[in-house]
Design a protein around this nucleic acid. Sequence first.
DNA 1: GCCAACGTTGGC
DNA 2: GCCAACGTTGGC
Length: 152
Amino acid sequence: MAHWLFKSEPDVFGYDHLVAAKREGWDGVRNYQARNFMRLMQVGEQAIFYHSMAKPAGAAGICEIVKAAEPDPTQFDPATKYFDPKSKPEDPLWAWVTVGPVEKFRHFVSLDELRAMPALAESRLVARGNRLSVLPLTEPEFDTIVAAGRHP
DNA sequence: GCCAACGTTGGC
DNA sequence: GCCAACGTTGGC
């Protein structure tokens, strides 16, 4: 089983929104690398739900893949900001996965804390200039974040 | 609001 | 195919 991390701006869609929605298609990913990661995701795999552009930014909880990749419908909808005229229904460019909530962390793990963890030193999450919104984590990286989030 | 980093675009 | 310009992301 692979492990992942999703970034979202909590002002737009935070962990509590996912809890309220119960499941949600992860729309709007328009980066090929992030899309390719989503295509690899399998039902039941877990991911860290990370709050970006927040004060502070950090890990809010755990979510899981409840439906594998399929075309992101917003790419065909001119009413959304994710509309992509280059994408054709017979050959969709962009994918989404559907995620559901698993566990909200008792302790929000701030980016400062994540940076201080030796187990995360090699992760893309804390790399300079990291702009990828969907990325893989190793099992130790994932477990380290979860352990911190469960800590009182 | 600023700035660094990086992906994408478009001219050649 | 190269690369400069531009736009977006994300932390601060």
